[in-house]
């Protein structure tokens, strides 16, 4: 059992151990979808949504597997459950809200294989969070992911207007920016434990 307060879990997941900038998970959407502010916010929202849902599922799966004494099946079960949950959520959204489905578009199926989502499920189990703690943890993780994406998108939109040396233009410059962002997020380490 873990006695962390919900507030500290949220700060921890979103800022101090930001999934993208401190633990380096989910780097591919961070580099791939951060070109425009609009898509970055949508992607962030979609990831947060999927993280919270899969966190709840992972909590249930963990309880089940502990009951039948087969915790070594956790990883494979998480993968299967997350993939099918995303599939179900996609169908559900397509039926209920075509507008939201069009807005999220290709991002939903892409999240199926996002490592940050799987990491939430694995970390919350290893830290021994209960259900509310898990949900706050995943929501914090999603919020941190969105924050990182939005920051990156803002910087990249500004960079479009500046003159950049041909040698570092494009992906190289984005990686520089990512490194500097990550460095600055290290400053949050003093906030908590």
């Amino acid at each position: 059992m873990n006695n962390e307060s919900l507030w500290s879990i949220f700060i921890n997941a979103s800022l101090i151990n930001n999934f993208v900038l401190a633990t380096f998970l989910g780097i591919c959407p961070f580099l791939g979808v951060s070109g425009k502010m609009e898509t970055a916010t949508k992607m962030g929202a979609a990831v947060t949504f999927v993280m919270v849902i899969s966190s709840a599922c992972a909590y249930g799966i963990h309880a089940l597997l502990t009951a039948i004494q087969a915790p070594f099946l956790e990883l494979i079960s998480f993968i299967v459950v997350i993939a099918s949950t995303v599939q179900l959520v996609e169908m559900f959204i397509k039926k209920v809200s075509p507008a939201l489905f069009n807005a999220l578009g290709i991002f939903l199926p892409l999240i199926t294989t996002n490592c940050a989502v799987l990491a939430v499920a694995l970390f919350q189990t290893s830290k021994g969070y209960n259900l509310p703690q898990s949900l706050i943890y995943s929501f914090g993780g999603g919020a941190g992911f969105t924050l990182a994406l939005v920051l990156m998108a803002g910087i990249r939109e500004q960079l479009e207007f500046s003159e950049v040396n041909g040698l570092v233009k494009g992906t190289a410059l984005v990686l520089f920016v990512a490194g500097i962002l990550s460095l600055s997020f290290m400053g949050f380490a003093g906030l908590g434990g």
Partner: peptide, 26 residues
Amino acid sequence: VPIAALGILSLVLAGLIVIANRKLYV
């Protein structure tokens, strides 16, 4: 145990997706 557990899990998920595919057909 693992074979049964994973088997049941995948069957349940497959069933859910099949049902969803029918019910939520667009």
